[in-house]
C-alpha cells in the first residue's frame, strides 16, 4: 500500500518536473526542473533496489551534468526568452499531436507485450553488495569491449570539448 502511494507520488514528481523542463520559458528554471526530475528518477531506482545505479544517477547526472548546464546558462546570463517555442499554430498542433500519438503507440504496445511480467515473479536480491559485485564482474568480462570503447570516446570528447570552447590564444584572452 505505502509502496504504491510512494510510486505514484514519485511518478507525479518526475512527470511534472519533466513537463516543466519543456514548458517553462526561462532556461534556468528548465535546468532546475531537470535536476529535480533526475533526483526523482534516482529515488525511483532506489525503490527498485538498484541502489548503486541510483547513487551513480545522483552523482553523475544531478551532481555533475546538470551543474554543468546550470553553470553555462548562468555564464551566458540568459533571460526569459521571447521566442521560446517554435512559431506557427499548425506546426504546434502537429508537434503536440505527434508526441501524444507516439506516446499512445508505445504505451499501448508495451501494455500488450509485457502484461505477463508482474511482481509475482520478482525475487528479492540477496544483498545489495552482492549485486554490485555481479555488476562489476559483468562490466569487466561480457561488456569489456563496450567499456573500453566508452573510455576512448570519453577521451575524444574531453579533447574535442576543450578545443571547441577554448578562446583563441589561451584561456584568459578575450574572444574579440
Amino acid at each position: 500500500m505505502t509502496s504504491t502511494v510512494l510510486f505514484y507520488l514519485l511518478q507525479f514528481l518526475i512527470l511534472a518536473s519533466a513537463l516543466g523542463v519543456v514548458l517553462i520559458p526561462n532556461p534556468i528554471y528548465c535546468a532546475l526542473m531537470l535536476a529535480v526530475s533526475m533526483i526523482g528518477i534516482s529515488a525511483l531506482f532506489f525503490s527498485l533496489e538498484a541502489y548503486f545505479v541510483a547513487g551513480v544517477q545522483l552523482i553523475v547526472y544531478a551532481g555533475a551534468v546538470m551543474v554543468l548546464f546550470v553553470m553555462v546558462i548562468m555564464l551566458f546570463n540568459l533571460k526569459n526568452e521571447v521566442v521560446a517555442f517554435s512559431k506557427g499554430l499548425l506546426s504546434k498542433v502537429l508537434k503536440v499531436s505527434l508526441s501524444v500519438l507516439i506516446f499512445a503507440l508505445i504505451a499501448s504496445s508495451l501494455s500488450m507485450s509485457f502484461a505477463d511480467l508482474n511482481s509475482s515473479q520478482l525475487q528479492p536480491y540477496e544483498s545489495a553488495m552482492r549485486s554490485v559485485k555481479e555488476l562489476s564482474a559483468l562490466l569487466f568480462t561480457k561488456y569489456i569491449f563496450a567499456f573500453e570503447a566508452i573510455s576512448i570516446l570519453l577521451i575524444l570528447v574531453v579533447v574535442g570539448a576543450v578545443s571547441l570552447a577554448r578562446a583563441k590564444g589561451g584561456t584568459h584572452a578575450s574572444d574579440k
Binding site: 500500500m1 509502496s3 504504491t4 511518478q11 533496489e49 508495451l110 511482481s119 520478482l122 528479492p124 544483498s127
Partner: peptide, 13 residues
C-alpha cells in the same frame, strides 16, 4: 536479505 518494497507495482507501470 532486502525487503522488497515493490510488491504491488507491475513492470508496465
Amino acid at each position: 536479505p532486502l525487503t522488497s518494497s515493490l510488491t504491488e507495482i507491475s513492470l508496465n507501470h
